[in-house]
Design a protein around this nucleic acid. Structure first.
Lengths: 110, 110
DNA sequence: AAACATACCTTGACAGGCGATGTATGTTGG
DNA sequence: CCAACATACATCGCCTGTCAAGGTATGTTT
């Protein structure tokens, strides 16, 4: 892992919601997708991932249901809600603002 | 405050070190400078600021000394060390990488 | 005299990340 | 055939950074 978790902290929810904007998915798949997208540079720790699911479901951003796999391990699918889409957009624009702010604050030139 | 602290979290040290790259400074002034730079959009909470100073001094990134104000409240000045400059550069490039990574992960298009 | 600005500091609570550990199913290499 | 690995989910308890609240002290302005 080459990225400090304190930098990613606060983006976990956004990352998960972004994935669910494409359609329903489940934990393992979401994590694999993150690894693929970042060429293995980043992954969510399982404990982080599942605690995020709990958080997001509690606040109404996602809902979940068990898949009907006839074979293999069972999967719990997650679906983004209308509220979740709205929350995601908020998080996105917050990120835009934060990115500018941080760049401003850590620039050595003034 | 319009930026969630979980997004800025992990940048506190970088922000402080960036300021000290210009020269020695003290807590109150650093915080005022942050508010100025961001037009009041962001400020470090005092508890956060001073706990960051402690952290940075402990790991050898900064050193401190009391100013010799003949009038007004006393000031504790902080100075970035050679190690601190190195650490700052590391943090900077980590931010570059993280920014790209996050953008990649929260993009809805793929 | 009160309010405000400058300036520092500590305590205790809280939230998110994560190492460790556990469960269960299915596939594959030797 | 069985050990190792991949898939897939879940929880517990620790650690770390943030911050509300509170405190101290000096100087200026109203």
């Amino acid at each position: 892992m080459s990225i400090a978790s304190d930098i990613i902290r606060g983006h976990t929810d956004t990352i998960i919601l972004a994935h669910l904007m494409h359609g329903d998915s489940y934990g393992y798949e979401i994590n694999k997708s993150i690894q693929r997208k970042t060429d293995g540079l980043y992954e969510l720790k399982e404990a982080t991932l599942y605690s995020a699911f709990r958080r997001l479901e509690q606040d109404g951003s996602i809902t979940s249901y068990w898949g009907d796999e006839s074979t293999g391990a069972r999967r719990r699918y997650y679906s983004i809600t209308e509220y979740g889409r709205h929350a995601f957009n908020e998080l996105l624009s917050e990120w835009e603002r934060a990115r500018v702010l941080i760049d401003q604050l850590i620039a050595v030139e003034d």
